[in-house]
């Protein structure tokens, strides 16, 4: 086994060069490059974490914006509904008032017409009485040769007409 057979001749060289080259590996590669690689990985992880956090924040912001928008739109819709309801009520009230006005005018006209009708009827009745009393006094004068006073004839006719 050369490891043992050559031990006394080579151990110093083996140990020396092992220390030298492992030392190179440790100081150049281990101390030199490994921390750089670790820093790169850490930076990348940090960047990914930051990006994720930013995305999360943006999502939160979008969600709160959406909630705000929903609230605003609900409020505006409610306002619009109230406005419509008010307009409706106003319109109803206005039309009612106008209807009432028109009804009053119509009622007044009806009353006037009624009054005129009543007056006309009374006139007509009076006319009929006069005509009837004249006719009655004429008839009486012609048939009986009696001259009846106008007032008496009128009263007699009135009695007959009105019972």
């Amino acid at each position: 086994m050369p490891q043992i057979a050559q031990l006394s001749a080579t151990y110093a060289s083996q140990i020396f060069w092992a220390l030298i080259f492992f030392g190179f590996v440790f100081f150049v590669v281990g101390r030199g490059f490994v921390p750089k690689v670790q820093a790169t990985v850490a930076n990348r992880d940090k960047q990914i974490a930051d990006d994720l956090a930013a995305a999360e924040a943006a999502r939160r912001a979008a969600e709160s914006d959406e909630a705000n928008w929903a609230a605003t739109s609900n409020k505006q819709r409610a306002e619009a509904q109230a406005l419509i309801a008010k307009a409706k009520a106003d319109a109803t009230k206005a039309s009612e008032a106008r209807l009432a006005q028109a009804a009053a005018v119509v009622d007044e006209r009806i009353a006037q017409a009624d009054a005129r009708l009543a007056a006309a009827r009374a006139d007509a009745l009076a006319e009929i009485e006069t005509v009837a009393s004249e006719a009655a006094s004429d008839i009486v004068a012609r048939l009986a040769g009696l001259s009846v006073e106008g007032d008496a004839a009128r009263a007699a006719v009135k009695e007959v007409l009105h019972g």
Binding site: A9, T10, A12, S13, Q14, F16, W17, A18, I20, F21, F22, F24, V25, V28, V29, F33, V34, K36, V37, T40
Partner: peptide, 26 residues
């Protein structure tokens, strides 16, 4: 005696290859 042997040479090669590998990826 610390003669440069084939063993030392292969340790040197190990270092060089490892250095090239890590340096290329850093």
């Amino acid at each position: 005696n610390i003669a440069f042997t084939n063993s030392a040479l292969w340790m040197l090669i190990t270092f060089v290859v490892l250095f090239a590998f890590v340096a290329g990826g850093a």
